[in-house]
Amino acid sequence: MTAAIDPAAVEGIARDPGAFLQQLDTIQRRALFVRLTEADLRAASFLDERLGLQGRDGFWVTLETLSAISAAVADPVEAPHYIFHIGHCGSTLISRLLDKDGNLLGLREPLALRELSAARRELDSPLSRVSAAQWSALFDGSLKLLGRGFSPGQRALIKATSTCNDLIESALEHDSASRLILLHIPLESYMATMLKGQGGGLDALHGAPARLQYLHETLGAESPRLHELGHAEILAMGWLSELLRFRRAADADAGKGRIMMLDFEQWLEQPDALLDAARKHLGLSGRATSAGAVAQWPEMRAYAKSPAHAYSPADRIHDLDLSRRKFASEIADGLRFAEHMAKRHPELQALL
């Protein structure tokens, strides 16, 4: 049931960063807040439905009350920084390593951002549940609430879900102080990673329509059609779409210094130097990381999405080699599709 909130309660929620905006519901025009500690947020790999709400205190408010709560948040709220990524490319690990700095608070895949992304894609449709103005207000208010820190000057580092990359432009427009890391891996490694996973990259298959739509709109093309593509070709198409989106955003940002493109495989080869580069990009101070230090951190020997399980860079290489042998034919299909698309659209050639 959606709670009626009195003005004093609105002020209390606005001042409490532990009242976490967990969900937006545009159907019933309400929002869910859940009580979380700073330690809860730092421990969570996902802040979506996988967070687990059973046994947690929470309450629903109307979207109108949500607007009042965000308006009551005391300024200043530091503008969030972001990690956008193509999926299964080390984003959780990078987020956890950057989260070691007390001035950053890593928020990994908040559901509210995913819901905002889905709503944004429907804005041009007569079936959209919110207007463009309502969406902008929801986006601004949600970021203000997500950006609340537990200590003065603490800034949120939001790692978005891989299907939220359509929010890159909105994130840049929201606050000029925000900095973005766009994380990716080469196509062949992406194919091997996705095919070895449960469902063979089911999340990428679900996100394929939106990615193909972006590719069509950007390239001015009407093909390929989704029903014409095989499993591996859909994965390659999604990679092309997101890398094109990243490259266009980075090109538009040239000279402004707000976007850092980061190849996770290059980061694995130079973790100390490139982690320092990412920290510098986000405006973090501190001494340079000594050579070989990052490799010794416990995060590098655990599976970032489930830290109780051991997993090292060597384990990753082993798993990818197995996948490359098992799915050699499918990987070849995906690479051929990408090369064919690049011949038809020269803008894609540089991505390969």
Rank of each mutant, 00 (worst) to 15 (best):
T2A: 09
E11H: 13
L24Q: 06
F33N: 12
R35D: 15
A39C: 06
A43G: 04
A44H: 09
R50D: 13
R56S: 07
D57R: 09
G58R: 13
G58E: 03
L63R: 06
E64N: 12
A68D: 14
V73H: 01
E78V: 05
I86H: 08
L93C: 10
I94E: 05
D99W: 02
K100G: 11
G102T: 13
A112F: 02
R121P: 08
A132I: 00
A133R: 09
W135H: 07
L138N: 07
L143K: 10
L145V: 10
P152C: 12
Q154H: 11
Q154W: 06
I158P: 05
A160P: 00
T163P: 07
L167R: 07
E169P: 01
D175Y: 04
D175M: 00
S176H: 05
A192V: 07
P209L: 10
Q213H: 14
A236D: 13
R258E: 05
I259C: 07
L268E: 11
A273W: 11
A277C: 00
G286L: 05
T289Y: 12
R301T: 10
R301H: 14
H309C: 03
Y311M: 05
F327Q: 07
S329H: 14
E330P: 01
G334I: 09
F337N: 06
A338H: 07
L348K: 13
A350M: 07
